[in-house]
Design a binder for these strands. Structure first.
Length: 727
DNA sequence: CAATCCCATTTTTTT
DNA sequence: AATGGGATTG
């Protein structure tokens, strides 16, 4: 790297880039150029300090960020590519370590292990709960899964958890946790947490493995350090144990993943953990216009758990932050779309983003954009790889690689339908338990030993033939060609075409399959990777990974979490309401509110030139209209920094709609006052019998009544759907 | 065994 | 409002 390259940095950045070594903490405020600093430091290490790329590990928060970082460094070095540099997310790095060394763990895992995605994991938990006959409504699969995850990342295995479990919930979770772990091992499968936990165990327990990696990684750089969890922290300690060169970059004001186990304390305690650490603050912001930065600074200054930074900018002027109070969520979306269209005079679509707290909010914005022919791309939400047809095909491939993958087998045993029903599957499961074999082995046994009626046996035999064909090709055929082979061997396309019109039309499903195959082609050309790596990449893909820069000029719609690390000239931050921002489920603890405030801060600081904030006085939640109040965060921004817009053009266009909405609201309020269901009143239900109304919520068609039934306990019912009558 | 219908639950954020 | 699971029917 030439000195002119370094000259492009400001003094603080330069200090960080050239920091000698040992532990260093770079507190990098939003928009202060931290990606730049990391890229330059890697380049500096390679050119000026003669460190081999193979001896550098850089951990990023998404795979997309990893790819961009790799390219950026290569550009700085004037090299076409840097294949030996280790760059990836914690999960990807751990997966790589495990693929290479999992056999040293001494367990039954092989390097062909499957990585379970979130859907697989929750489906598994649901089944395990059912198998144990646990159907308590207070024990939801989601809650169980997150309890298991918390235990795992907190270093508590199933046995310890069972010993320490007290209370109804924990005692119900304990056996499920044990089943879950067992099932994963039997299936040669790992969930997201296992990647970290098992990599850490490997490194802690196998000295030769630890030594090898610790020796290799002379320099470790970690981005988004504020969102690391305890396991990741321990991994870093071990991996940097030999050389001690740990370069951590983060911003405590942007920590937004506590609910996922991230521990803000990691960054707050950095100087305690590494007493010799050099601490460098990057406080100059290069991204946002002054009013945006000031508004964001004021907001986040209300937090208490901070190391404290004050961001400044040399940018002068810039328009005030706009605030719009919409009568309804529909009108909010209309405002957003109108604003996008107006701003499109000066900005391309891809330069603008609409941000919101929850995925469910995307719908109204999609509709508004659709109406006005504004091209948009929803980032996250229901992911491409979670579509049924895609998951089906991936299940074939997974099974081809890992015959123990039970979930994959169960998914496709009868897809396309080939006459293998629930009864047969149950029988196979029982046989597997009896003989102590995997499910697939049981299927083979049943066919070989002719344990089934001819029809079922022939069906299973047909399935096994396809699978064996797949197994013989899996090592030698590229992913795309293999997928095409599966399509023709199974008649999958014909199956989709013949499917009754329950779901989305076959056309779009077939289109998705084409997309999958072409994604594989692209992968083969660009990465020269094999099927194993493709499946891994796919399982660890983040929401941001689906953003294809330059592919299409479209407005991005995404959650605040998905927007982390990105920037846009124009940002619309929507749904700034009480109970949504901060979210109602985080509102009961000060810590929770602080994290929501940081989330809001992250959203605001994504904006470069223009920031629009909006909220709605009425919003549909659960299909029920609800009156809403503005977010308390709005009061924390000095009003001098906000410009309220009603939008004259907007008023003209929508005043009739507005009035209609008001009338509707009044009518609903009037109806809500009807005494049909009052707390304390007696009601009758055809199924549950008599009961007493405890409370009501919602209005009109969405009126919900909570009733304590004499014989069935507490139920929450939609008044006009449930045949509930006042007595 | 498969397709269809009906009901219940869902929504906080995700590697 | 939508999805998915369960029961029922063909």
């Amino acid at each position: 790297m030439t000195s002119t390259t370094l000259d492009a940095l400001n003094p603080d950045q330069k200090r960080a880039v050239t920091s000698l070594g040992g532990a260093a903490l770079v507190l990098a405020g939003a928009g202060s150029g931290k990606t730049r600093v990391i890229a330059h430091r890697i380049a500096h290490l390679i050119t000026d300090r003669h460190v081999s790329p193979h001896n550098i590990l850089a951990v990023t928060f998404t795979n997309k960020a990893a790819g961009e970082m790799r390219e950026r460094v290569a550009t700085l070095l004037n090299k076409p590519a840097l294949p030996f540099l280790w760059i990836g997310t914690f999960h990807a790095v751990c997966a790589r370590i495990l693929r290479a060394d999992v056999q040293a763990l001494g367990s039954r895992y092989t390097r062909d292990f499957t990585i379970l995605d979130a859907g697989d994991a929750s489906g598994l938990v649901r089944h395990l709960l059912r198998d144990r006959g646990i159907s308590d409504r207070n024990i939801q699969p989601r809650a169980v899964l997150s309890a298991i995850s918390r235990a795992k990342t907190g270093g508590m295995d199933a046995e310890t958890f069972a010993e320490k479990a007290y209370g109804h919930f924990a005692q119900s979770v304990a056996p499920v946790y044990r089943d879950y772990e067992r099932r994963l091992l039997d299936s040669n499968s790992m969930d997201f947490d296992d990647l970290l936990v098992l990599a850490l165990r490997l490194i802690e327990e196998r000295e030769e493995v630890r030594r090898r990696y610790a020796e290799q990684f002379q320099h470790i750089l970690v981005d988004e350090y504020q969102d690391t969890n305890r396991i990741q922290y321990n991994l870093l300690r071990h991996l940097s144990g030999r050389w001690g060169n740990l370069f951590a970059v983060g911003d405590e004001d942007q920590s937004i993943y506590h609910w996922r186990g991230a521990d803000l304390q990691n960054i707050l305690d950095f100087q305690r953990d590494f007493p010799q650490a050099e601490v460098i603050k990057l406080e100059r912001n290069y991204r946002s216009a002054r009013p945006i930065l000031e508004a964001a600074n004021h907001l986040v200054s209300h937090n208490t758990r901070r190391l404290g930074k004050s961001l400044w900018t040399e940018r002068e002027g810039g328009p005030a932050v706009k605030l719009f109070a919409a009568p309804t969520d529909r009108e909010e979306a209309a405002f957003a779309a109108d604003t996008l269209r107006a701003m499109n005079a000066r900005y391309t679509w891809r330069q603008m983003a609409v941000l919101y707290r929850t995925n469910a909010q995307s719908r109204s914005f999609e509709e508004a954009c659709l109406n006005r022919n504004i091209p948009y791309q929803v980032v996250g939400g229901l992911k491409f790889y979670e579509r049924k047809e895609v998951k089906d095909l991936l299940a074939y491939l997974r099974l081809g690689l890992n015959p123990l993958d039970r979930l994959a087998l169960l998914r496709i045993l009868n897809v396309p339908t080939r006459g293998i029903g629930k009864g047969t599957v149950d029988q196979m499961e029982r046989l597997a338990v009896e003989r102590g074999t995997s499910l697939l082995e049981a299927v083979r046994l049943a066919v070989a030993e002719e344990l089934l009626p001819t029809r079922s046996r022939l069906a299973l035999q047909g399935f096994l033939e396809i699978l064996d064909g797949l197994r013989t090709r899996v090592a030698t055929t590229q992913p795309a060609a293999l997928t095409e082979w599966v399509l023709s061997a199974t008649g999958y396309v014909e199956y989709l075409t013949g499917l009754s019109e329950a779901g989305p039309d076959p056309e779009s499903r077939i289109e998705n399959i084409r997309e999958l195959v072409s994604a594989m082609r692209e992968f083969e050309n660009q990465e020269q990777g094999d099927l194993r790596l493709f499946l891994e990449r796919q399982a660890l893909a983040s929401d941001q990974d689906q953003i294809k820069d330059g592919a299409l000029d479209a407005v991005k719609l995404m959650t605040l979490h998905a927007a982390k690390g990105l920037e846009f000239p124009v940002v619309l931050l929507c749904g700034l309401e009480q109970d949504l921002m901060p979210h109602v489920l985080s509102a009961n603890s000060e810590e929770g509110v602080e994290e929501e405030r940081r989330l809001c801060y992250v959203g605001m600081t994504r904006a470069m030139d223009a920031l629009f904030l909006s909220w709605a006085r009425q919003r549909y939640v659960f299909g029920v209209p609800q009156g809403r109040l503005p977010s308390p965060f709005l009061r924390e921004i000095p009003s001098a920094l906000l410009e309220e817009v009603g939008g004259v053009a907007y008023e003209e266009r929508s005043s009739s709609l507005h009035e209609a909405a008001l009338l509707l609201e009044r009518a609903q309020q009037a109806r809500a006052k009807e005494p049909a269901f009052r707390p304390g009143g007696r009601v009758h239900h055809p199924k549950y019998g008599f009961g007493i109304v405890l409370s009501t919520e919602g209005q009109g068609d969405g009126l919900k009544v909570t009733v304590s039934f004499n014989r069935f306990g507490r139920k929450k019912l939609l008044a006009n759907l449930a045949k509930l009558e006042p007595v």
